[in-house]
């Protein structure tokens, strides 16, 4: 069953075409990896789905509703959550308050004005899931890079999105952190629809099932990991080598 349906999506910045007539569908429960060389349009695609960038033409339908002209917070409320390449958590709030704020977004304004006696009931559980319980009351500004990414994921999960868009979740992480993030991702994917932008080939090999390859704003190919890896066009554009060279 289709959750996200992108039809003929084009985004241009001045004379530059970032996305060129993209068609993409995503089913409920899917875990999709989005790869492509720098400038392929991966982040622009996520930006356009989440309302950060306006499409020049084409339509984005989510769960039967058109998203095209909606503002960011409405799209989040419709059920699409995302993270960013450079993690942005609120450094002057505690880890728990970050998650609490993310979890409280469906409260009415006047409910927000009340002084909360207890944090949102899901906060301890979410922090447990991402392994940040020991840092519950630390300021988010004191977290390491990897921990910030996990905090972002916890904030994302707190919002119960139907679709999660993760922009390079393991960039800049240590090997141990990558493994942990990968496991976290697998668990999340069990009951969520997830799109991951990732550059890291090793990470991709370990966790990716379905892969879509973007190149110069177009979808180059799509399929399971093995098929995509063996596609000579992918090897050429993505790895920057001719097929012969990549074969051992």
């Amino acid at each position: 069953m289709t959750l996200l349906d992108i039809r003929d999506l084009t985004v241009t910045f001045g004379a530059f075409t970032a996305l060129d007539h993209i068609d993409l569908t995503l089913d409920h429960g899917e875990l999709r990896f989005l790869i492509g060389p720098n400038g392929a349009g991966k982040t622009t695609l996520i930006d356009t789905i989440t309302g950060r960038t306006r499409p020049t033409s084409g339509t984005i339908t989510f769960n039967g509703h058109t998203l095209n002209k909606r503002s960011e917070h409405h799209i989040v409320r419709a059920g699409i959550g995302r993270t960013f390449q450079t993690s942005v958590v609120f450094e002057h709030l505690t880890v728990a308050d970050n998650v609490d704020l993310a979890a409280s977004f469906r409260l009415r304004p006047w409910q927000l004005l009340r002084r909360p006696r207890t944090p949102h009931p899901e906060v301890p559980d979410l922090l447990e899931r991402v392994g940040l319980t020991p840092h519950t009351h630390a300021l988010a500004g004191t977290l390491s890079h990897g921990q910030r990414q996990w905090l972002e994921i916890a904030m994302l999960l707190a919002q119960h999105p139907r679709l999660l868009l993760l922009d390079e979740p393991v960039a800049g992480m240590s090997a141990a952190e990558r493994t942990r993030t990968g496991e976290l991702l697998t668990r999340i994917a069990a009951d969520h629809t997830v799109v991951v932008i990732e550059h890291d080939m090793d990470f991709l090999r370990r966790y990716a099932r379905q892969v879509t390859v973007l190149h110069e704003g177009r979808i180059l190919t799509h399929g399971d990991l093995a098929t995509v890896q063996n596609d000579p066009r992918v090897q050429e554009v993505y790895l920057g080598r001719t097929p012969q060279e990549t074969r051992p």
Binding site: H73, V76, V88, F90
Partner: peptide, 12 residues
């Protein structure tokens, strides 16, 4: 600290 980020938490 991050007005745009807040939008992606679903707040206006």
């Amino acid at each position: 600290d991050g007005e745009d980020r807040v939008r992606y938490l679903g707040y206006d």
